[in-house]
């Protein structure tokens, strides 16, 4: 009788276990039951297979570009517009840098006052805000990548002569992160190379800048952060360069990305 009650109870726990919704104690009871109940074990395997098949094969539909454009236009109509005064024939790159150059003065002044007034941690938060804003700006149509190439041997030379350091470009497609391209940006008044990856439908921007603490070698990355807007940010320093990975990808997968990048 006791066994029967346990059995019925566990049937109801199968889904919660599958969805990671059981606390430690219930999970232990659940596993104990599975170890001597072939029926529940089989059912659990079937449910897992179904769940995996859905996640793998059923599409998560992405918003059509026209819908995204229409919404962006109605929400931030002028954000993407470059200033009108252009002394040189404007290349695509110059158009891109010009609004950022405006941000440069402001960013530099802000950084200077921040440096005096508040602790490093807050500066770090300001940088985090800054990379997230840059990421959102880049999601606007036509701004995501200046060079749209999925081959690291073509993305890397594209940065040559455009910035005064050589950002490493890595091929991580075997780990599910596909190289999409690159662009230039300014983060807190500092030149940044941005290497763009895609994981399923999520874009990942990897911002690379020269580090303040160059020469100090690799530093342990601070804990991953989720901004109020729902973007996740991973930051690390390596070989005199600062890295920020920004994406709406979930925390674990972005952490995997950071690990994959540093592991090579």
């Amino acid at each position: 009788m006791m066994r029967e009650i346990d059995h019925l109870e566990v049937r109801n726990l199968l889904h919660a276990a599958l969805d990671g919704e059981l606390d430690t104690l219930d999970m232990m009871r659940f596993e104990a039951h599975l170890s001597d109940c072939t029926e529940c074990t089989a059912e659990y395997a079937r449910l897992s297979a179904l769940s995996a098949a859905i996640r793998e094969r059923v599409p998560r539909y992405a918003a059509p570009a026209e819908l995204r454009d229409a919404l962006l236009q109605s929400l931030m109509p002028r954000e993407a517009e470059p200033p009108k005064v252009v002394p040189f024939p404007a290349s695509r790159l110059q158009r891109w840098l010009r609004p950022a150059a405006g941000g440069f003065t402001l960013g530099a002044a802000l950084a200077a006052s921040l440096a005096v007034m508040i602790a490093t941690r807050n500066v770090e938060n300001a940088v985090t805000d800054s990379v997230v804003t840059a990421h959102i700006r880049a999601l606007q149509p036509g701004h995501l990548t200046d060079v749209q190439i999925s081959d690291q041997h073509q993305v890397k030379p594209w940065f040559d002569g455009k910035i005064d350091f050589a950002p490493p470009v890595k091929e991580l497609s075997d780990q599910g992160f596909n190289l999409v391209g690159g662009r230039l940006d300014y983060i807190q008044g500092r030149e940044a190379a941005v290497i763009v990856y895609r994981r399923k439908l999520h874009m990942i921007d990897l911002f690379v800048t020269r580090s303040d603490h160059a020469g100090s070698g690799a530093e342990p990355a601070p804990a991953p952060r989720t901004t109020p807007s729902g973007y996740n940010v991973e930051h690390w320093t390596d070989g005199g360069l600062d890295y920020w990975a920004v994406s709406d990808l979930n925390r674990n997968e972005l952490a995997d990305f950071a690990k994959a990048w540093q592991g090579r």
């Binding site: 998560r60 539909y61 819908l67 995204r68 919404l71 962006l72 959102i136 807007s229 729902g230 709406d248």
Partner: peptide
Amino acid sequence: AETALPHLDAAYN
């Protein structure tokens, strides 16, 4: 925009 747009794909899906 900063709150809602990151979830546009989820909304559409």
